[in-house]
């Protein structure tokens, strides 16, 4: 009896959390900035901490993932005598799947966890409520700039990741393993379509950005105002963010590739 009751309680709680998260998102979107230049300066500060500071991890991991893909693709394709196709493999894997997904996972770990911790600490030290006391809207001042900065940064980071990965793969395949550069690029260009592959990757990254940043700011705003609560909220951000990225990736891929 008790276990059924606790199941019911947790079900009600999680549905209520979904509802609160939805209301929270509407609040964030509806609170328009009072002045454009003030909002821009807040936004630029957040883009710097969310995007520019994530650049190093994105570039380094993109480079190594591209190089590993080039190496693995070469050893397998060389068995079939079609090692020129490594360019095609590299570009399609990076643009369609690995670029958006790995970037979003790294972003959830690197930037979103920091967002949650920051907002959670503001709540724990009662900065949010004192802002409200001063008549400053915390949604407009704190939450919205961080949310929008995430939406802007993740697609850009994803594009940079894919480009760097392809450069890294080219370095391994063409400069090191001596695949003919012309057929490497021409096979790649023949199989990659800008309007589907590149644009779909960016759309994917944008959807992941909405999901992870929303989770991050909501968890920060909702967290228990204790040091333990902040830790739990940060963990939840990374776990829920990563899971939602992978689940969304399946849905988006099915919608983009499948015509069924």
């Amino acid at each position: 009896m008790k276990s059924i009751q606790s199941t019911g309680l947790s079900a009600i709680n999680s549905i209520a959390a979904f509802g609160r998260a939805g209301l929270f998102l509407i609040q964030v979107v509806l609170h328009r900035p009072k002045s454009f230049s003030g909002a821009m300066s807040l936004l630029i500060k957040q883009i710097y901490s969310v995007g520019v500071l994530s650049l190093v991890i994105i570039i380094v991991s993109g480079l190594f993932i591209g190089m590993v893909l080039g190496l693995q693709g070469y050893t397998i394709l060389a068995k079939f005598g079609s090692e020129q196709a490594v360019g095609q493999l590299l570009a399609l894997t990076l643009l369609r799947e690995l670029g958006p997904v790995v970037t979003a996972l790294l972003f959830a770990g690197r930037a979103c966890s920091a967002l949650t911790a920051e907002i959670g600490l503001m709540k724990a030290t009662e900065q949010l409520s004192s802002l409200e006391m001063m008549g400053v809207d915390p949604y407009r001042r704190i939450i919205a700039p961080r949310f929008i900065a995430g939406l802007i940064c993740l697609p850009i980071l994803c594009i940079i990741f894919s480009a760097v990965g392809i450069l890294g793969g080219e370095f391994v395949a063409v400069s090191w393993l001596q695949i003919h550069g012309g057929s490497f690029w021409s096979l790649m260009q023949q199989s990659v379509y800008f309007s589907t592959d590149v644009v779909n990757g960016v759309i994917k990254a944008f959807c992941f950005a909405i999901a992870t940043t929303w989770i991050a700011v909501f968890q920060g705003y909702e967290c228990e105002p204790t040091s333990e609560g902040i830790g739990k909220a940060t963990t939840r951000t990374v776990v829920l963010g990563s899971l939602s990225i992978l689940a969304l990736d399946f849905i988006l891929t099915a919608a983009m590739i499948g015509d069924f």
Binding site: I44, W185, D197, V198
Partner: peptide, 25 residues
């Protein structure tokens, strides 16, 4: 700060141009 953000955005557009021209031809 603004300079760094500007560089970041420019880098993003450069990467997009690279993907458009070199990768998808």
């Amino acid at each position: 700060l603004e300079l760094m953000v500007g560089l970041f955005v420019v880098l993003g557009f450069a990467a997009l141009a690279y993907l458009a021209i070199q990768v998808s031809g």
